[in-house]
Structures are given as structure tokens and as C-alpha cells.
Design a protein around this nucleic acid. Sequence first.
DNA 1: CGTTTGTCTACTGTCGACAATTGACGTATA
DNA 2: TATACGTCAATTGTCGACAGTAGACAAACG
Lengths: 234, 234
Amino acid sequence: MSTKGVLLQHVDNKPLREKILDTLREAIVSGDFKPGHPLLENDLAAQLGVSRAPLREAFQILASEGLVETIPYKGTIVRHLSRQDIEELYTLRCVLEQFAIRRVIAAGHIEDVATLRGIYEEMLAAAVQGNLKAVNEIDRHFHDTLIALSQHHLLTETWSTVTLRVRQVMALRNRRNSDLTQIAYNHVPIIEAVARGSESEAMDLIEKHVVTSLDLIVELWDDGAEASTEETAP
Amino acid sequence: MSTKGVLLQHVDNKPLREKILDTLREAIVSGDFKPGHPLLENDLAAQLGVSRAPLREAFQILASEGLVETIPYKGTIVRHLSRQDIEELYTLRCVLEQFAIRRVIAAGHIEDVATLRGIYEEMLAAAVQGNLKAVNEIDRHFHDTLIALSQHHLLTETWSTVTLRVRQVMALRNRRNSDLTQIAYNHVPIIEAVARGSESEAMDLIEKHVVTSLDLIVELWDDGAEASTEETAP
DNA sequence: CGTTTGTCTACTGTCGACAATTGACGTATA
DNA sequence: TATACGTCAATTGTCGACAGTAGACAAACG
């Protein structure tokens, strides 16, 4: 007989490398670990209370994601972010998002639009409350959802590594965007273009959306000292 | 005094994980290790004459590249390739290549076109000699070069993992394409579209180029048994 | 019988110890 | 004094041994 009705949480038996990975990834994309920051294996292992083996396995994954850089026999550091890196990040992001939208429009599921509208409502609510952090999270969620709706796993995977680094850039950015409701409003034309199925219009809007964010960041990006951790807005 | 004039090879002191990585990657994309093939750590370590630590580090990278799949406490296998996977591979590939071409055209360096023409000449030469393997390699080189000319590192990185898996698909494909010169000819209109700077035309050509290859493969792809290793053509 | 529980085994996960490499610093030598 | 050459400490790379897990199969139980 099985233990009916009683529902229990799964005990957490993820391998250490995955827990370590989550921890380090968060530290990097949140800007806690700044570009150039050395990741010493002994120190980190001691700090996290693990041995170096799973730590090193996590390093390989972080390196594949482009978050860190390992030079053999020298060490691993958080990757530097040049102006060019950021431009590449945003231009590729744009291409991926445009591709996703084309697929969403082509699929033509009306409920997709409803999903996006729902997220927009949340974002607007958070914006009028002046909750910057929430707006940021919901904005990320909006774009992640757009990608997910494309029903393209490979795209989704590629997207997730790109956005990780975009998050990092935003966390390191040295100025804060203020007009939260405007950020929310910006999403309306995109949703409506998808709703109407007007592909070329949606393409232009995404491009503008992304290029604007890029300009805001690159404008005053200091290639030498990528730093200053404040909450910033998309 | 330095040892003038005498030029010596660098001794190979790459970390083991990288050598292992190259070996395993080649085995997978060449179709030697077929989808579903289990990668047992003890066996492989013994076979390669290394310990499990660097082997496992290589596994993490292969997993990030989408070539293998690791299930915690169960094991690592070469990833299965469903029809949908292949479709996603080729559609994303198409998007990336289109993006690259847009950038090459926008940059407008005349020498880029010359580079591409040069590679085409090589391909044609190999084709008339009926050298299937060479045509395949040069075809890959053509597309890799196109990406490289875009001067977009992030795109280049993304591309390289996608094409790895495309190579794998071609290696596993169960029929051989015969008309080699036709394959070479197919590249002419693309080069000329780039030369004339006609973006929309180039976009269409790439799309057709890729969709055709995709159809040829998906047409008779057996989702159950991804197999039969023969040389195949693009 | 069918279900549960114990046991065994092949494998992955983790650890601590040791080897190899690097770069810095000091030292000899012309 | 400038160049080459030991030497050393810090760090990464590699290894072998042990711990933990999942799945299969057998034994106990109703």
C-alpha cells in the first residue's frame, strides 16, 4: 500500500556540482563577483564546504556559458565584459527574439497573446507600485515566456545562456532607469503586433526595444572598470 | 642568448580534459558513438589511460554542447536525436547564418567576397574529382568562414556548437547524396547575392539552402534507430 | 499470488593526497 | 649591471580510494 494523501517534498539529492553551479552563477550574474574576480579553487572549496572535484566540474559549465574564463595552469576568473561583448550580446539576443516571435505568430495560438497580456498586467501593477525589482523580474519573465512560446527547445537553451549574461550586464550597469511605467508600456505594441499577426512590425519593435536598451548601457560603459552594483531597469 | 633561428614545436601540455574532450567529441560527431551509447566512466578512463576526474570535466562540457546527456547517479549517454531536434538544429542554423550574412553585407568589405569565391573554387575542384570527403570539409569551411566574416564572436561560438551537432546528423544520415558539382554550384547565387549586397535575396537563398538539406535528412529519418554510418553530403 | 522488504552490484559522486606548472624572487656569473 | 639560472611558494591538474545511489533480483510476508 502506498502512503496515500500525504504529500512530501522531494529530498534534495542534486549532485554537489549543480548546487555549486547555481550558487556561483547567481554570484556572477548578480554582480557579486565582478569581472576579473579570481575563482580560487581552494578558497571556494573551503568557503562552500566541498572538495575541489565538483567545484571544477561546475567551472567547466560556467566556462561553456561564457560566464568565466579558464586559462590552463593559471586559473579561472569571471569573464571581462567589453563594450563589444555587450553589443554582441544584445544583437544576438535581438535575433533570437525576432525568431521566436516569427514562430509564435506563425503558430497563431490565440491563448499565447492572452498569456503575454497577463504578464504585462503584472508588470504594470508592479510598475505603478514603484517596485523596481519586481518589474525587472517580470520583464525577464515576459521575454522568457515569449521564447518558450516559440516551442523551440534549442532556441530556449541558447536564449537562456544569452540572457544570463544580459542579467549580468544589467546588474553591473552604473546607472538606474527610473520611469517604470514607461518600461511596462513599451511592451504593449509588441503584444499587439503579435496579436494582429503583423510580423514585420513586430520585428521592428523588438529591434527598437533591444537597441534602445543597448544604447542606454553602452553609452556610459567603462571598458576598464566594469562595476558598481546597483539595481537597474531594462 | 636566445636560440635564434631554430624553430621548435610547442610541446603539447594541454590539460587532459581538453584532449579527452577532443577525442570524445570527434567520436560523437563522426557517428562512432551513436545516440544512446553509454559513456561509462571506468571503461573510458581505462581505455584512454586517464583517471575519471578529467574525464568527468570533459563530460560537463559535452553536456553543455548538447552532445551528451547526464542523468545524476544514472550515467551519461550520447544524446538522442529526434526529428524535432534536427528541425530545431537546422532552423536555428538558418537564423544564425542569415544574421551573419546581413552583417557581412552591411560591412561591405570587398575582400570578403573574394574569400568566399576562393573557397567555392576549391569546393568545385574537389567536386569534379568526386572527392566526397573533401567537398564536405570545404562546405563546412565555407559556412564557417561566412560566420567568421560576420566579426561576431558570440555568434561564432553559438554557431560552432550548432554545427557540431549538424555534423553529427550528417554522419548518422542513412543515405548518400551523389551530385557533388551541384552542391558546389548551389553556393554561387549566395556569393553573388552578397557581392551585389542584395540582402533580402541572400536571406531567401540561405533559407532555401538550409531547408533543402533539412528535408533531405528528415524525410527518411527514423526516430527510433538513429544510425548507419556512411559518408554523406551536405 | 502480489506486495513489500532486504540484499547485492555496478555505477556515479566526492574526497584528500600527490604531481606538474607557473611566476616571482633571489643569486651567480660574465 | 644585465643576463641567465636555481629555487620556492602558490595554484591548478591528476590520481586512487571510498561513499552514496539506483535498479535488479531474491526473500519474507500477508
